[in-house]
Each structure stands twice: as structure tokens, then as C-alpha cells.
Amino acid sequence: MSAVLVWAELTEGRLKKPSLEALTAGRRWADALGLPLWAVIISDKVPEGIPATLGEYGADKVIKVLAPEFASFSPNAYARALAAVLREKNISYALLPQTYDGRAIAPMLSIWAEAALLSGIVTVPEKTENGFTAKRIAYSNKGIEWVSSSHLPLIATLKANSIVPAKSPRAIEEEDFPFKPSEEDVRLRVVRVEKIAADKVPLTEAEIVVSGGRGLKGPENWGIVEELAKVLGAATACSKPVADVGWRPHHEHVGQTGIQISPNLYVAIGISGAIQHLAGVASSKTIVVINNDPEAPFFKAADYGIVGDAFDVVPRLTEAIRRYKEQHAH
């Protein structure tokens, strides 16, 4: 019971928002338990400034598990390393961001650490008479589930955009943890990594998403979506039919079989709002729907709705936001 441990994920040498959210949640969990918060980094090297950032977001100590094998991702090797840290440091509580890699590691870690796993929680685990309890989203946003576990160790993954990152600065201690992955754990090998348009905001992390559907009539009309996204600093997305006919790439498809997102603001343009689409976006904090069909089912899930022609409304909205931003620029 020495600490609460958070896996701080490095993406191209940087700590991204999901890790800062996990640190923030981890800090609150540790405070409630009267324990320190430790961050763990698994990498081939620690880029400059990372320990300082971890300290800024509340970590009392960073444990560095460094080996050349960690230059590329293997969930087997990462999970083994985390299991070794939990065991040797006698740690009962661990939190991972629910990113692609976090979701690959956590279940493996839960087996090798003989731990319980609360997956995709949106609240800090709270101690109750039923053990630790947390909330998660169920049935495609049609239900909320309260899950609990009295099994220790306890591991949780935190859903993106469920907690606002908050600083809680402290002087951070650094510790090296010697660990070498076995050959078994690096059987799978990353041959290469292909990044899609590195200048764009990744959909799963975006705070604002602007999305287009069939109502835009053709891929040549996506300029208005991209212009609005640009002025908002948003990622672009699309509905399933649009990806299926090839107007937009599949990696932009949000919805049940595409990517599930929960940004702070989701702007849906020319999307009717089929239930499969809503399943992927309904947990967005604020939803704006622009559609020329007043009967579009999406309006039922909207916070703000504009019934109108997207080709008329969207450029004017983009312009109005640009003007607002210019007037309020510091």
C-alpha cells in the first residue's frame, strides 16, 4: 500500500492530455487514501522536462523503467514491466489512461498482477462498504453503471475527457527501476509507424470535433467543415455512410463501429443522427446540430440546433467565430 501508481504514457516523447487527466485523477485518489502519487514511465529514454511536468500535475515520485526494447510498443512487455513495479513496490492501486495503448496493457496487467480491473471509469474510485466504486458509461450511452471491487490490487482505466487536468505542483523524486523484458514479451515487433497528418488533432483526444454527414452531398464540399474546424482548433470527423462511400477516410468515422468520442463540443453538420452514430458521440458534453431537416433525430440529442442549409449557415458561423476570436484575442 505504498502509493497510487499512474502509468504516464509518452507519445513521441510527450505527455498528452489523457495522461494528465490520469495524473489528476490519481492525485485525488491518493489524497483520499492518504498515499503519495507515483508516476511510472516505460520507455527507452526520458525526454527532458517530463519529470518536471509529472511533478506539476501532482506526482511525488517518478519511477523510470528504461530499456531499449521499450522504444516501440509491445503490450506484453509494458504490462510485464508494470506488474513487476506493482509487485516489488507493494502497490495496490494503479490507474492508466484509457488510450489505445492503455486499453491494451491494462487487461494483461490485471492478470499478471492478479488484480481487479475497473475499465473505462469516468469518476475517481471511491471507498464504500462495497469496496472501491466508480461510474462508467454503458449500453452506448443509454445507461450508467456503478461498478465496484473489493479485490486488491485494483487497476482502473480512465476514459478520456472525463476529468479536467489540474495542476498540483510538488518537488518530484526520481527513481530508476531496473527491468529487462524477456524475449517472450517482445515476440511481436513493430515494423513501422505511419502517422496520419501529424499537424491534425487526433480525434480521440480532441476537445472540439466538427463532423459532416451525407447532407454535405459530396467530398468536394468538405471545405466548410474544415474551415469551421480550423477556426475552432477542432478535429474533423464524419458519419459511417460518408466513410463507407469513400468521401472521407475510415479513421474519421465516429459512431458505434467507428471511433467513440466524448469531446467538450461536437458540431454535427448534415448528419441525421442514426442511433448507431449517437452511440459513438452522445457522451459529448455539448452538441450542436446543423441540419435542414427539422425532423432529424439528432436534434433530440442536441443542446443547440440550427434548422437550415449547411452551405449557408456553416460559412457564416465560421466567420462569426473568427470575428469573436479576433475581438477577444489577448
Binding site: 498528452k16 510498443f73 515487433r189 515494423v191 509507424v193 505511419e194 496520419i196
Partner: peptide, 10 residues
């Protein structure tokens, strides 16, 4: 993966 893909051999 976030913002891209990995090619893996196993």
C-alpha cells in the same frame, strides 16, 4: 493507434 497506425509482425 492515436493519430495513425502501426505495422506489426508476430
Amino acid at each position: 493507434i492515436t493519430g495513425g497506425k502501426e505495422v506489426i509482425e508476430s
